[in-house]
Design a protein around this nucleic acid. Structure first.
Lengths: 336, 336
DNA sequence: CTGTTAGCGCTTTCAT
DNA sequence: ATGAAAGCGCTAACAG
């Protein structure tokens, strides 16, 4: 690997000059530039990004923390963030937190140790206090999908409560009165919010909320399956089942079918997130659009603006609204 | 950010000693170690990984190139590689090549500029020659899902030809004689191989291969949809449709259903890859298991062994065999 | 077991 | 417009 030193030698100029043509900020005469460029080409020179970072204290890379590296939801987030940032010459370093406090802390430490210029974190297990401190520290941080008190300008969130509300509202408007709910793990804030919105919709429509109609799942397909079965057994009169995410809705749909029920004739099912696959299910899943890509894009733009002073096409928004995606899995209640 | 220098001052020892307790290789007295550890804690010291890398010429990070950051296939690969490597204290830096030659080249350059200790690449667009040179260069490279001539010890591949063969064989054994095929983009080697295996199975069973029964798709759902429709229109007698990946099978299934056909009664459908979602379809998809996780794990182990001299649980394998996953979308031919 | 001393490859004042 | 020189924070011989 050729170094800048060899380039300067071959080109017959100083180190500083080579550095200048690389960075293109200071003035260099055309003739000198040519000599340097030729030397670089002949040596096959590639700058050492590590050394550049150490000297300049800038890495041109942004750390991204997600919970998992697989799954549609995080896939969308990673893809979008990478696209926006790469379009502006920045790089993304991705790490996984696995929804475990220690793993998340270690992942963020890793990102900081690599001296990322900024961080985009989808952290579920660390405390609010930790995120507040992080936001106050020297490295700029964007928080995705979590409203942390005191640092609203760092947070990019969807209104989960409203999402839960519109899903329930849609079911009620189709005449459903006996509605089961498979929630996410209740220690997660978004799971709490979605359920809260669900309950609000029921209450507003004069349907009393029965806690036994709620099954606590874990956002994975298997718990949708289990929840569907459990709820159906305890409350055979249920005509609609709302799941706190699409994955669980997939599981529920499979379970319902295996139990001999037709969707949506015998049982309507509604999801949440609108991941890509929800439209390939049969019947196509009615769900709530969770604008994760939009949030990721906004967070990336915010960083481009805050950290690199790049112009930003649109104003920065922090609050995103969920919308209903009407497809085929929610039908009119039979007994209505 | 405290530096090693401040730590050495507070602890009253030299730089070297601090470095020693950090790396834990050389002998340090317990008393000295305590002093250093205390100093680090009181200063909240975190080593600068950039500086460590520059000085040691080792980054403890492995570059991973995938085509896309979303999708089940790459999600599985990224997840597995990260898990194995993290368990051994290494980090993964992920980049996307988008199946575009320039983007792939840039991504690999980025990884090299970050001085990754090794690379795992799922490159689709760069030339064999480039990969051969890369494998010969100073940075160790594992190539996933691509058999490159001359560097077999770097490649981790599944036998795609055999995969195509067993899918067709399974359909034939169910009595199907009129079999449509939606291929991947034929400029990709794996797409060619899968089709070759398909044709071999037909030929072996005495079914003459009709080129008009093959529709060239692009591995995306929409082309599965289009291919299914086109093939059905031209060859209404088709009783089975084999798709070169699960995504296209999803699209085909949707198209078939919208055309009023029952799967598998009217039309059997077989996929390839066995991505997670294939079991949530209705009917559950019969497909060919593509052991991408196993390949990723093996590549990671190979690097652990080659680059870091870590012990490896199992012997390194380079060739993986596809297997049939029998579910519900392939049924007996009606006319058989 | 501990300290000294060169760098690693590059950026960035400060001169000229 | 160009060069000289001082680091960036850490590791790794080499001494002792």
């Amino acid at each position: 690997m050729a170094t800048i030193y060899e380039v300067s030698e071959v080109a017959g100029v100083s180190l500083a000059t080579v550095s200048r043509v690389m960075n293109g900020n200071a003035k260099v005469s055309d003739r000198t530039r040519r000599k340097v460029l030729d030397a670089m080409a002949s040596l096959g020179y590639k700058p050492n990004a590590i050394a550049q970072s150490l000297a300049s204290n800038r890495t041109n890379s942004i750390g991204l923390l997600v919970s998992e590296l697989h799954g549609s939801y995080f896939g969308d987030l990673m893809s979008t963030v990478e696209r926006v940032l790469k379009a502006n010459g920045k790089h993304v370093i991705i790490t996984a937190g696995h929804t475990d406090e220690n793993t998340e802390l270690e992942a963020i430490d890793f990102l900081k140790s690599r001296r990322c210029d900024a961080l985009i974190v989808h952290a579920e297990a660390v405390s609010d206090g930790y995120l507040q401190d992080l936001a106050q520290s020297d490295v700029p941080v964007a928080v995705i999908n979590r409203q942390v008190e005191g640092i609203p300008s760092h947070c990019f969130v969807v209104n989960n409560e409203q999402g839960g509300y519109i899903a329930a509202k849609a079911a009620i408007e189709q005449g459903h009165r006996h509605i089961g709910y498979v929630s996410g793990p209740m220690l997660k804030k978004d799971a709490q919010d979605r359920l809260a919105g669900h309950v609000r919709a029921l209450t507003e429509q004069g349907i009393s909320h029965d806690e036994s109609l709620v099954y606590e799942g874990d956002y994975h397909e298997s718990s949708g399956q289990a929840g569907c079965l459990a709820l159906l057994e305890q409350h055979p009169q249920i005509t609609a089942l709302i799941c706190a995410n699409d994955e669980m809705a997939f599981g529920a749909m499979t379970a319902a079918r295996e139990a001999g029920l037709c969707v949506p004739e015998d049982l309507s099912i509604v999801g949440f997130d609108n991941v890509l696959f929800s439209r390939y299910l049969f019947p196509k899943l009615t769900t709530v659009e969770n604008p994760i890509s939009a949030m990721g894009e906004m967070a990336a733009n915010w960083i481009l603006k805050e950290v690199y002073d790049l112009k930003c096409p649109h104003p920065i928004e922090h609050l995103f609204v969920p919308t209903l995606v009407e497809r085929a899995s929610l039908g009119r209640a039979q007994d209505a």
